[in-house]
């Protein structure tokens, strides 16, 4: 599809903006931001029913960044989509900035605080219950990290969401296989992950999390009539640090400052798309 070409280009732009923000702040989380570029692109430039000129529109779809440390690319996405000026991105992590290290309400397009892991899926349940109570068609999307699934509250929420029959709720797991101190598999394994979600009553889809067309199809399938009454989880298999060769699959780039030289290298790769 032609639109996928432009999705890929949007994702590259989000990555460039993210690298610039992290370089400027000399802080932040590159790896888990870069792995989510296509997921955020497909949500904000396709799947979600939103209007950046009306961020408070009652029937808008909701998004919760449960993996709050991916805030840089989330801010880049909101700016790229027109919620606020991209110039604001230069204030990321600065005193008095609305662009805090982790998402904070008040910035147009952001509905909830996050950053302490494991809580976003529950917040999404509240949103979905609220939408149902109001008779709103709004869908709710929650982006989680795979390491984040080690938090017990995620599974409290997983039980509740299927118990409440929340088919308007879609969880997306950015399964980049790394967490701060090593691989998820070596720290506390989640496998068999699809079976776990199925056992909790969810409709489970697995996709390549860097394939925009596959992501778009999965997000569409999550709303299919035949899964009425069940929430959907999309396990998006991703590469941590995706798009910047020296950051890919690197535990060191979970959280690290980008030097001047590495910024130049990263941006050069993201112009050509060399690593993708």
């Amino acid at each position: 599809m032609g639109s996928d070409v432009s999705h890929d280009e949007v994702a590259r732009r989000l990555r460039r903006r993210t690298i610039d923000m992290l370089w400027r702040a000399q802080a932040g989380h590159p790896g888990g931001s870069l792995s989510a570029a296509e997921i955020l692109t497909v949500l904000y430039f396709g799947a979600m029913r939103i209007d950046p000129t009306r961020p408070d529109w009652a029937d808008r779809d909701r998004f919760v960044l449960s993996k709050g440390h991916a805030a840089p690319i989330y801010y880049a996405t909101l700016a790229e989509r027109g919620y606020f000026s991209p110039e604001l991105l230069t204030t990321y992590d600065e005193l008095d900035s609305m662009l805090q290290a982790h998402p904070f309400v008040g910035l147009p397009g952001i509905d909830t605080c996050s950053g302490s892991l494991g809580q976003g899926l529950s917040v999404g349940i509240g949103m979905a219950l609220g939408a149902r109570l109001k008779g709103s068609e709004a869908r709710v999307f929650v982006l989680l990290g795979d390491g984040e699934l080690q938090e017990g509250q995620v599974w409290e929420a997983a039980m509740a969401a299927s118990s409440f029959g929340l088919d308007s709720l879609t969880a997306i797991v950015d399964a980049n296989r790394l967490q701060l101190y090593g691989t998820v598999e070596s720290i506390v394994s989640l496998e068999p992950l699809p079976d776990k979600w199925r056992a909790f009553g969810w409709n489970v889809l697995e996709v390549d999390g860097h394939d925009c067309a596959a992501l778009a199809a999965a997000l569409c399938a999550a709303a299919a009539p035949e899964i009425t009454g069940r929430p959907t989880v999309i396990i998006a298999h991703t590469t941590k640090g995706k798009g910047v060769s020296f950051m890919e699959n690197s535990v060191e780039w979970h959280s690290a400052a980008v030097t001047d030289e590495l910024r130049e290298r990263a941006l050069a790769e993201l112009v050509s798309g060399a690593a993708s």
Partner: peptide
């Protein structure tokens, strides 16, 4: 909304409901 024996989940769900008015 009966969430079962899950106080953390209950509290975050309440937050989500509050964002919906």
């Amino acid at each position: 909304f009966e969430v079962g024996i899950a106080e953390q989940n209950m509290t975050s769900i309440a937050a989500g409901l509050a964002t919906m008015g």
